[in-house]
Structure formats: structure tokens, C-alpha cells
Simulated scan of single mutants.
Amino acid sequence: MPYSVVRAGHAELLVRDLAVSRRFYEDVLGFVVTEEREGRLFLRGVEERHHHSLVLTESEVPMLGHLAFLVAENDDLDAIATYFQALGCDVHFIEEGEEPGQGRALRVQDPFGFPLEFYAEMLPAECMLQKYHLHKGAGVRRLDHFNCFVSDLASCEAMWCEGFGCRVTEYVETDEDPRVKKAVWLQRKGNVHDIALMEGKGPRLHHIGFWMDDMGSIIRACDILGGAEMHAHIERGPGRHGISNAFFLYLRDPDGHRIELYTSDYLTVDPDHQPIRWSATDPRRQTLWGHQTPESWWRDGTTVMDWERCVPVELRGVTDVRAAGYIK
């Protein structure tokens, strides 16, 4: 390919009260505040060495602002712009510093409605990993992945695999003939996933996953939430997934955005790694052990922003993407 996506880079969430959200993310989850300006907060995990992996932007309507991916070189941005233009998408470049801490970047509303950003450079930030005396809350380590509801799973998977070189690590499939995929986990950085796609009304963000040090740090997050009388923010877990083998905890932030605290998955760097198939009828795919998954986890998601109009993108049915002519 004429460009290289390195990994999931950062996400922007629109929140109604920045002060309330700051207390949740900084004091409870333990994010480090890199910068605050003009109704925006730029956060990173204690392990991270870039300016931010999470942006909180104050807004009347909570939604996803954008999902961002780090690319290898600045020239990759122009090649990716050409790729999206060939799909019929409008692209927009933002200059260095327009998003604080970040270099030149490409923004696009992809064929499935998701606001995506690609960038090659970001200002360095101090790694706080071994400054244990300064850690707050649960001590989130780093961004791990995004998980999204999509209306046309097959076409969206094709875009990420054929267009961006993602590899499938695990997938959920029906048992009937012909078999149909219901969800896929895709990676670029050599773990289980940078982005997961689940069939559903979309475009919507299901969750953002952040890596934790170990299982004990996730239990500590539960203790912190309980001690602060914020246990109602726990939606699901702790438990262990069948898919990814990860130990997990799902939280809802003050605006309802879903955050996963995640650890103990596995490496997928070997070139002969074969994807793992799960039957759609196997309940262990989502919960190897743990409490029953609540209905809200299957149903709820964060709407995504239309960059041109700054309003939520209308949810699509499964045929809309193909009808728009973006995917042949």
C-alpha cells in the first residue's frame, strides 16, 4: 500500500459539562491532563508519550467527535485522501496546531458515516509510567482500541482490510449456510484489535477501550468507584471475554459514553496467525465467565458527529451504504 496506518491514535468525545467529565476521567480513571483550552481537555494515559489519546470537548449534545489513527509518515495523508476521494468522500486537511499538540491531519466522513482523522505527528509528552507517586485513580495506561456499530459489516470490513491493511484476528459468524459474519476484530499494531466492527444500527460508537496494567488495577477501579459512591457507572463486569481473552470492565461516563478498561489479551504479530472463529450461538464469545451481559450493552451506543453540520449523523439501514454508491 502507498501508506501505512500504525495504530488507533486518539478519540474525541463531546460532553455536556467539562468539569464533571474531568473529575470522572482524571480523578477516578486516572488520566493525565496534558492541556486545557477553550472548552476542550486533552488527556493521556500514564504510559503514553504523545500529547493526547482522548479529547473531551464541551457541547450541548454528547456524541463522538472523531476517531483518529496514527500513520507512519506525513506523505501518507495525501495518499489516504486520494483513497477516500475515489470512494466519493469529501476530505479536509487541518494544519499543524489546529488540533492542539497535533501536526497536519486529514479529516473525512467515511462511507459509513464515521468521522475519521489521520495524522503522522504529535507533540511528545512526559511518560508518567514510573512516577507512581503522581498516579491518580485507577491509573489508565494507554488507548487500546475502538469498537463500532456498523450497518454494513461486510463492506466496512473490506474497507479496513483492503484499504488499510488490517488483519482479522477473531470473528463471530452464523452457523447457517451461507454463513454470515456478525462482528470482526481487526488489528494493525499486533495485538487483538485496533478497531472492532459489530453489525447494528450505525454509525455509532460502542466503546473506547483503554489498557490497564493488570487484573488488579481493574478491581481497584471498581473499589474507587464504590468508595466514591459512583458504582452506578459500572455497566458490565468485571469478567473475562472469550473473544480476545481480555479481562474487562465496562463503564458509562457522565454523558453515557461507554469506556472499557481492558487487559490480558494476546499478541498477533506472527505472519501465519489464523483468525479465530466464534459461533454466533456460543455465549462464551462475549463472556467466558462473569455476570450476564445487560441489555443496555447490546442496545446503546454513542451517535457520531457530521463534521459539516456538527449534528449527529442519521442512523443507517444495512442497504444505505451500497445505495449511496460508495462500495461496489
Score class of each variant (00 low, 15 high):
M1T: 07
P2M: 01
Y3D: 01
R7V: 00
G9W: 03
G9H: 01
G9V: 00
G9N: 11
A11F: 10
E12S: 06
V15P: 03
L18M: 10
A19C: 05
F24N: 04
Y25F: 14
Y25L: 04
Y25S: 04
Y25A: 08
L29G: 05
E38Y: 05
E38G: 06
L41F: 02
L41W: 04
F42V: 06
G45Q: 11
H50M: 09
H50N: 13
L56E: 07
T57K: 15
T57E: 15
P62A: 12
A68P: 00
F69D: 04
F69G: 01
L70S: 12
A72H: 04
E73A: 13
D75W: 02
A79F: 02
D90L: 14
V91R: 06
E95R: 15
G103V: 14
A105C: 08
A105V: 14
D110H: 03
L116I: 06
F118A: 01
E121L: 10
M122P: 02
P124L: 05
A125D: 08
E126L: 12
C127L: 05
L129K: 15
L129Q: 15
Q130N: 14
H135T: 01
K136I: 02
G139M: 07
R141W: 09
R141V: 14
L143I: 09
F146R: 03
F149N: 00
F149A: 02
S151K: 00
S151G: 09
A154G: 08
S155Q: 10
S155D: 07
C156N: 15
C161Q: 15
C161M: 11
E162A: 15
R167C: 04
V168Y: 04
V168E: 12
T169I: 07
E173T: 13
T174P: 07
E176C: 06
K181G: 06
K181T: 08
W185C: 00
G190E: 01
H193Q: 11
H193W: 02
H193N: 14
I195P: 02
E199V: 05
G202Y: 02
G202L: 00
G202M: 01
R204P: 00
L205N: 01
G209S: 15
W211T: 09
W211D: 13
W211L: 14
S217G: 03
I219M: 11
A221N: 02
A221I: 14
D223W: 09
D223I: 08
I224T: 04
L225F: 09
G227M: 06
G227R: 05
H231F: 11
H231I: 10
G239S: 06
G242L: 10
S244F: 00
F248Y: 15
L249W: 03
D255M: 11
H257L: 12
R258M: 15
I259F: 03
E260T: 11
E260D: 15
E260A: 10
T263K: 07
T268S: 07
D270P: 02
D270W: 14
Q274S: 09
P275L: 06
R277M: 13
S279E: 08
A280I: 10
P283S: 10
Q286E: 14
Q286I: 15
W298I: 12
W298C: 05
R299P: 02
V304W: 05
E308F: 04
C310P: 01
V311M: 15
L315R: 05
R322M: 06
A323I: 13
A324C: 07
I327W: 12
I327S: 05
K328T: 10
